[in-house]
Design a protein around this nucleic acid. Structure first.
Lengths: 208, 208
DNA sequence: GTCTATAAAATGATAGAC
DNA sequence: GTCTATCATTTTATAGAC
């Protein structure tokens, strides 16, 4: 009996391992090409299995992308929870933007906020994804309120504007352009985007 | 002889009119769906002609999109040239962002700055487009230098960062999100994006 | 130049053997 | 569950009549 239980557990582990490998490939392709240009042939090739095998794990291309996106939101939530509690609310928000832009530059950030992708509607109709997004928004909304209360973020700006502006940094083409230009390191690009996102471009950086 | 000349001129005019109608449809579809999701069938349907007729005017889908994008840059250059000379350099730059975001909200702004679109490489290899982009960048670079010189834009920020940041507003998903939310008018959305782009989110708007 | 019809290729998804 | 082979559909592009 114990053998049987261990065997099942081992098989389940193997399954999860394989599905994680598939989602890794999907995440990478979503980051580089987006949903519409990603093909199932490419996914299969990057994982190193036959295309038909993909469909034994995920019912469709949409299901594949949805699972990958849900995992991404889980990771964002993990980043939020692991943010040092000693930081100010503003610095926590900046830390999230740093993570998002860094992931973007490393080709591990799917370009989610594009309302133009055909996957967007599928995602909004996928409860597991929306539930996770809701939890993420809740945590960030708290930080935003706190930052507005202590005067480090403009109190006259609607909270949703701040939220969307932060989200949008994860797909900001400015990072790609600066990387293409080659004049800046990835770290410099990240700091530039954080600075322009929060401080704008009209005043010079004050000593931190 | 005069009849013949007029006839040719008239035919040429008709041709241009038809091709402008085609480019209008392409521009609209590029703005709503992007290059990869736009199909030649849709273009033909929106213009109201047969798909094969499209290929009598433009050699390929890429040629169609390139011509549309070249026309867009021409319009941007026109906006730049029509900007009132009495405005400060900073206000001229803000005026361009206003035009870009307004066009975006009106579905007349193709999402050009995405390095993820498959049309990007075609465009960079299309000299007429690149030449126009170069002229646009030149004019904006001058305004940026002037704004930095008079202290209205941060002098410590590399000019190309400012340039790309301004360009990127034309495809900013924040505008789409705010429109989807329904809490703001188009004009309010435009002003929000202009403000966060230039002033950031860390200080309240000062009286203008 | 416009049309209908069709070729040629890409791609999401499935059948069926093992 | 993995594979090979194949289907069904979409989509870019062209042929050929008028």
């Amino acid at each position: 009996m114990q053998d049987s239980v261990q065997k099942i557990s081992f098989k389940a582990q193997q399954l999860k391992f394989r599905e994680d490998a598939i989602l890794d490939a999907v995440n990478h392709l979503l980051a580089r090409k987006g949903f519409d240009l990603m093909t199932m042939d490419e996914v299969a090739a990057e994982v190193g299995i036959a295309k038909a095998s993909l469909y034994k794990h995920f019912a469709s291309k949409e299901a594949l992308a949805s699972a990958s996106m849900a995992r991404l939101i889980d990771r964002a939530i993990a980043v939020v929870h692991e943010m040092p509690g000693t930081l100010s609310p503003l610095d926590k928000l900046k830390g999230l933007v740093r993570w998002a832009v860094t992931s973007h530059l490393a080709n591990t950030m799917p370009l989610l906020p594009s309302t133009r992708s055909s996957i967007q509607q599928t995602l909004t109709n996928y409860p597991p994804y929306m539930e996770k997004v809701g939890r993420l928004i809740e945590a960030l909304g708290l930080w935003i309120e706190q930052a507005q209360a202590n005067g480090s973020l403009s109190a006259s700006l609607p909270g949703e504007v701040i939220l969307y502006t932060i989200f949008a940094r994860s797909c900001d083409p400015v990072a790609d352009f600066l990387k293409l230009g080659g004049a800046f390191s990835d770290h410099e690009i990240v700091e530039i985007l954080v600075k322009t996102c929060f401080d704008g471009m009209t005043r010079d950086k004050s000593a931190s």
